[in-house]
Each structure stands twice: as structure tokens, then as C-alpha cells.
């Protein structure tokens, strides 16, 4: 039994309505391909995202915490769920990932090994950790769009989190605080750089890039 009162503070609602309020359809197969087949190129999903890692006009969003591939089906799932569950006159969304462009090849069922690389089966979008998938904004609070974002998040092929402008700022502050107030004198960077106990034998090239944060 705790007696508290809700705060009905006035919140500004002068958010401009964009031209396209809904998520747009993304093509399943890209046009004007340079190459038909490509290498696996795992570099695409490795490490932190350098692009689309800050909210631009959105208030909330879904951010990937690990790397992975988005298929066309995932993009459709996001688009349809959002269109179904949210009033497009009030809440708007925007893509922060491109349409699938990376070919994934597969060999037919029951086929023996050999005979070269298989045919292109489908296309995927490579997503790195820390990349935003969609951005959401409008006349709604985070609590209102949380169930929709959670529903989407559960079906994504990689781990993700729901972020807002405030939460991203707070995260940044926490990270800064942890670096400044660390009682441990030993850091990964120092040990790796100075090669203590010949540790370089067990480290890969990416350990010298991200110092134990990503693998």
C-alpha cells in the first residue's frame, strides 16, 4: 500500500508529422548486382557498428547487441507488426537498416558435395553489434510502444535491446564512469600491448583492435 499520485504534466506534442509515417517495403532481391555470388565475409557482422548507432530523429529504437543477419522475412515481420499494432497517425517509424543485399548460397537437397559453389538462395542484411534496426518517434511515451518493440525484438535472429535517447545517454555516462573509477590497475590493453607472459600467443588480431570487448 504505497500512496503516490500520477503526474499529469503537460508534455509537448508539437512533433512534425513526416511524409512517410509507416515503414516502407524492402525489396527481397536487390537490383543492379555487381557480383552474383560473394564470400561469406564474416567481417560484416564482427565488431561494433560504425554506422546507424545513434538515434537521429527518433526517440526510441531497437538496437542489436550482437551481430547477425536479417532476412527479408524479418524485415517484413517488423514492418507488419508495427503497422498492425501502432496508430500510424501518432507514432512513426523509420528503417535504420538497408534492404537485403548480401547473397547467401545453398546447395540443393540431396546433392553430393563438389561441383562448385551452390546457387544464390536468398539475400541478407548484415548487422553489427550496436546498430539500430528501427527508430520510433511520435506522440507516445516509451511505455506505450514498449510492447510492440518487445514483440519484434523477441523474433529477431540476434540479441537486441530497446533504447531511448535518455537510456543511450545514461549508458554513455556509466561507461565513462566505469573507466574513470576503476580500482583494477590492470587493463586488457596494457597487458596485450606489452605482451605480459607472452600472452600474444593466445590473442587474435581483433583483440588488438577492440581489446577484449568484441570477438
Amino acid at each position: 500500500m504505497c500512496c503516490t499520485l500520477l503526474s499529469f504534466l503537460y508534455q509537448p506534442t508539437d512533433i512534425p508529422i513526416p511524409e512517410k509515417t509507416k515503414l516502407t517495403f524492402k525489396n527481397k532481391v536487390p537490383q543492379n548486382l555487381k557480383w552474383k555470388k560473394s564470400f561469406k565475409n564474416l567481417k560484416d557482422i564482427r565488431g561494433p557498428a560504425t554506422a546507424a548507432n545513434i538515434l537521429t530523429e527518433g526517440q526510441y529504437g531497437i538496437m542489436a547487441t550482437t551481430g547477425g543477419y536479417l532476412k527479408h522475412g524479418h524485415l517484413e515481420m517488423i514492418r507488419l507488426t508495427f503497422g498492425r499494432r501502432v496508430d500510424s497517425n501518432k507514432v512513426f517509424a523509420r528503417w535504420r537498416v538497408n534492404a537485403p543485399h548480401k547473397p547467401v548460397t545453398k546447395k540443393g537437397q540431396g546433392q553430393r558435395m563438389g561441383g562448385g559453389k551452390g546457387n544464390v538462395d536468398h539475400y541478407v542484411t548484415a548487422v553489427k553489434a550496436g546498430r539500430l534496426i528501427i527508430e520510433v518517434w511520435g506522440k507516445a511515451e516509451l511505455q506505450e510502444v514498449m510492447p510492440v518493440l518487445t514483440e519484434i525484438r523477441k523474433k529477431l535472429p540476434f540479441r537486441s535491446k530497446i533504447v531511448s535517447v535518455d537510456s543511450l545517454k545514461e549508458e554513455e555516462e556509466v561507461e565513462k564512469y566505469l573507466v574513470e573509477n576503476n580500482a583494477n590497475p590492470w587493463t586488457f590493453e596494457k597487458i596485450a600491448r606489452e605482451n605480459y607472459l607472452g600472452v600474444s600467443k593466445y590473442l587474435g588480431p581483433y583483440d588488438y583492435k577492440w581489446f577484449g570487448r568484441y570477438r
Binding site: 557482422i45 535472429p157 576503476n182 580500482a183 583494477n184 600472452v199 593466445y202 570477438r215
Partner: peptide, 26 residues
Amino acid sequence: AVNTRMKKPMHIMRAKLMKLTEYEKP
């Protein structure tokens, strides 16, 4: 190492290094 389903297990020396360099509260 990048496999999203199951990550490659760490070498014991690297695991030790990770443990050694963990954040410590002042």
C-alpha cells in the same frame, strides 16, 4: 569466433586475462 549461435570457447590464458582485467569497484 563470430558465430552468433555458439561462440568459440576461449583459450584458458585469454580467459584468465579477461578475468584479471575485470572492472573492480573502488
